[in-house]
Amino acid sequence: MNTLYDAIGVDYAQLRKPDPRIAEQIHAALDDAQSVLNIGAGAGSYEPIDRDVVAIEPSAEMIAQRPAGAARAVQGSAESLPFEDGSFDAALAILTIHHWSDQARGLAEMRRVARKRAVLLTFDPAFRDAWQLYYWPQLATLDDEQMPLLRFYEQHLGPVRIEEVAIPHDCSDGFLYAYWRRPSAYLDERIRKGSSSFWRIDGLDEGAARLEADLASGAWEERYGHLLAQENADMGYRLVIAEFD
């Protein structure tokens, strides 16, 4: 993960600006937690500013992307958190578990350091309704390889609550499926660089060429034009919330 994000991190903060509507849902899930450990924190997206936050991030480049005044950042990994048991009210992990080398150990560490709850924004690999898969079917294989099924969280955190995260059509955070109503964005190489998945698959240019042709011919709109009338869409993103006794 370090090597990948040392490359991605060069322009990451500009491409991945937190969306306030998603932030509101994440912060509500943190509930009354006043101290929060943000694991795989990257440039600091979705860190609440009204709580005591510590960030942990393996990539030095990503830490360097954190803005002035951001929470204190420690270089380290999810699998070996350098904190005592119960050091925080909550542990937070935003679109990061697919980068962990040992996901079960990382979840165990979240449970160890959090007194009250764990909150994760993740993706359900069973979701197959993203139109992007028509152009890059390799993304589904990648998700199967790197994203845990939702039942995995309950196996390692105990009972969990799952919330759908609706993605607004003008989402400001450039994660993989954020541009569901702005298909031409996927033709922009710079925008694609904001998603780690596009760094991991082959056939990227071929898929982009097919999309460009379909946008020009009207084929994309014929298949997916119904999306243009939607304000929000379910793109498979889920909030996983575990409450601890």
Rank of each mutant, 00 (worst) to 15 (best):
P148Q: 00
H169S: 07
Q138A: 08
S80P: 10
A166T: 06
M147C: 13
F88Y: 07
P58S: 04
V74E: 08
C171I: 12
F175T: 06
F88R: 04
G69D: 06
L92N: 15
P48Q: 05
L139F: 10
R105H: 02
L149K: 12
A185F: 08
W180F: 07
T122H: 09
A91Y: 10
F83N: 12
V54Q: 03
Y135F: 14
W131K: 10
L120R: 07
P125F: 11
D188Q: 04
L120K: 05
A185R: 13
I49F: 10
E57W: 12
A166Y: 10
L81S: 15
E84R: 14
E163L: 08
A114M: 02
Y177M: 04
E57L: 02
A118C: 10
Y135R: 11
S101H: 09
H98V: 05
L149S: 06
Q132S: 10
Q103F: 00
P137T: 12
L107N: 13
P125D: 00
T122W: 01
P137N: 12
L149G: 09
G69K: 09
L142E: 00
L150K: 13
Q65Y: 00
V54W: 05
H169F: 11
H99R: 04
D124H: 03
R111L: 03
F152Q: 00
L139D: 14
A178F: 01
P159W: 07
R105C: 01
D188V: 07
V54H: 09
I97H: 13
D52L: 06
G174Q: 11
I167W: 03
R105Q: 14
R51I: 01
L157H: 13
L187C: 01
A118T: 04
Y134H: 15
A73W: 04
E189C: 02
S77P: 07
L133H: 14
Q75F: 06
G158C: 06
Y135W: 09
P159H: 02
D170A: 05
L120W: 08
F83Y: 15
L176H: 12
V160E: 03
L176D: 00
L142T: 15
W136G: 07
D85W: 01
V165W: 01
V165A: 13
L120M: 06
E61S: 15
W131Y: 11
S77G: 09
P148N: 04
A108G: 13
G174R: 09
C171Y: 14
S184Y: 06
S101G: 13
E154G: 15
Q138L: 01
E79R: 08
E163I: 08
D89F: 02
A166P: 14
R72Y: 06
S101M: 01
V165Y: 05
L133W: 11
A90Q: 10
W100E: 12
D85K: 11
F83W: 06
F175A: 00
Y135K: 13
A108Y: 04
H98L: 02
Q155Y: 03
S184R: 14
S87F: 07
G86P: 04
Q146D: 03
L107C: 02
C171G: 05
G76F: 05
A68Y: 03
T96F: 02
R72M: 00
C171H: 14
F88A: 05
F175Y: 12
I56A: 00
S87N: 12
G106I: 13
R115V: 13
R151Y: 14
E154L: 08
V160D: 02
G174M: 01
Y186Q: 12
F175S: 00
E145C: 02
P58G: 09
P148I: 05
A185T: 09
P183S: 05
G86M: 04
E109H: 11
